[in-house]
Design a protein around this nucleic acid. Structure first.
Length: 469
DNA sequence: GCATGATCATGC
DNA sequence: GCATGATCATGC
């Protein structure tokens, strides 16, 4: 064997020979037909390159080394290379996963040490011809692992409560429970309820992967037990990396809100900690906040973000945890009476895209299954906005079904070239369609080639009011 | 007072 | 130039 199967560094070094190559180039000759087609790259690698039989066992792919092999696609954007999709781990066995703690969980047993192999996905290429761009061992930094463990606990607590059918990716921050299976409709039994639940797998959010990518491109390398590994490394495995110039990912500067594990109080989750930091400022007016936090008289648009960021302990750039978890922060302003000043707007409806979308891949589904962070202000009797409270939130499964019906209706209207009968706020269906553009002449092309006023997705103010009360 | 349409301001 | 968050204007 060209590598030491009990030595993670050796496995990594051998894997790195694939950098800037495709599997076909590395192996040469004919490749057995059974490994063509979507999703077969990982299996082909295991069988043809690492020479072991692919398995779907509970243990890692390289059991002696405790290493789990993961292949995952990159895509090119203007800034460089980013993750194309979430990284999917093992399927969650609802009937087993809750029985033991995190350390003994199927997730941790299998995935505590990953060999990540990122390849560049290109249209019209077969899997075997994708070029590997990033190959690295990966284990989670302690600060991230804390959040991942809490995420796992949250998923398991929902199973224990007989609510596996209500799981959503937006329940958690880094480790998600994503839909998995043929047409995403595969149903599984759960132990504490008779309701069938959608089959789900553990997954890492695509945004989280971008941070792994960036750290790698910035030159950070896998460091655990380096000395121990180096002692047993023979020259055979000492493969230097090809001299390839990567463009460093130009992600925005980020700073973590939690600087150290020690920031947590006993039993606290990340969300508890953030809420605690905000609660000290409840009741303060906008002006008081700006003064106390020592902020410059802020520009109107980013004012609320700057206040929130500062309370969280982040001085410049963006909030790292929120970026990784793809948390959507929204400011909500309430009248003194408690009603919302306005409904909540989201992205534009892409007329040409929505007609070809399926619900679980749609823009609206992906938006609503995010984790939200609401920062809520309310006007006092003098009309001054004061911080009322903050909350993390994800749309409950029942409401998501209403949003789905709304989305199907909207897609249908656009398919029928009907732009005048969208669901309105007065229909009280949680969400509605409303115009939003530079002005009424700001238009977008329809699938039929006409031009129509730009529209966007909204959540009804009355719905948000009910959610936050 | 609310629904609906429209537009402004900012930053990428 | 355009998307996005914020906000305004009008009419029922």
């Amino acid at each position: 064997m060209p590598y030491d199967k009990s030595n993670p560094k050796s496995i990594e070094a051998y894997a790195k020979r694939l950098l800037e190559k495709s599997l076909r180039e590395a192996i040469g000759g004919n490749i057995v037909q059974k490994y063509s087609g979507k999703g077969k790259l990982g299996q082909a690698l295991e069988d043809l390159y690492f020479n072991y039989t692919p398995n779907s066992k509970a243990e890692p792919d390289f059991p002696e080394a405790g290493v789990e092999l993961k292949t995952t696609p990159l895509k090119k954007i203007r800034k460089g290379l980013v993750s194309k999709e979430r990284l999917v781990f093992n399927i969650i066995d609802f009937n087993e996963e809750y029985k033991w703690g995190f350390i003994k969980s199927s997730f941790w047993k299998k995935n505590h040490l990953l060999l990540l192999m990122f390849f560049l996905h290109e249209q019209d290429k077969l899997d075997l011809d994708y070029i590997f761009k990033i190959i690295t061992l990966w284990e989670f930094p302690a600060e991230d692992l804390k959040i991942i463990k809490d995420d796992w606990e949250k998923i398991v607590s929902k199973i224990k409560a007989g609510k596996a059918h209500e799981l959503s990716e937006g329940d958690t921050l880094y480790l998600g429970a994503c839909p998995k299976g043929a047409n995403k409709g595969s149903l599984r039994k759960q132990p504490f309820s008779d309701t069938m639940a959608m089959q789900r797998a553990f997954s890492l959010k695509s945004k989280y992967l971008n941070f792994i990518i960036e750290r790698y491109l910035a030159g950070e390398r896998f460091k655990i037990n380096q000395k121990n590994y180096e002692k047993v490394l023979g020259n055979d495995y000492n493969v230097s990396e090809p001299n390839v110039k990567y463009k460093k990912l130009d992600l925005d500067d980020v700073e973590p809100a939690v600087k150290s594990i020690k920031d947590y109080k006993e039993g606290e989750t990340f969300e508890d900690l953030i809420t605690r930091r905000f609660s000290k400022y409840y009741g303060k007016s906008e002006k008081e906040l700006i003064n106390e936090l020592g902020l410059n008289k802020s520009k109107a648009k980013s004012k609320f973000y700057l206040i929130a960021r500062s309370i969280m302990g982040v001085k410049t750039g963006k909030i790292e945890e929120f970026e990784k978890a793809d948390v959507e922060m929204k400011t909500i302003r309430l009248e003194h009476s408690g009603t919302l000043q306005q409904s909540m707007s989201f992205g534009q409806i892409q007329f040409k895209e929505i007609i070809n979308e399926e619900w679980e891949e749609s823009f609206w589904f992906n938006t609503l299954t995010k984790r939200f962070f609401f920062v809520i202000f309310q006007k006092d009797t003098a009309g001054e906005l004061r911080l009322k409270k903050v909350m993390f939130w994800t749309m409950p499964a029942n409401d998501l079904q209403i949003a789905k019906a709304f989305w199907i209706d909207t897609r249908g209207k656009i398919r029928n070239d009907d732009y005048t009968h969208f669901i309105k706020i007065s229909d009280k269906r949680i969400c509605h369609v409303r115009p939003k553009g530079r002005n009424s002449k700001d238009k977008m092309q329809t699938p039929t080639g006409r031009m129509e006023k730009k529209k966007c997705y909204w959540l009804n103010s009355s719905y948000i009011k009910q959610v936050i009360s």
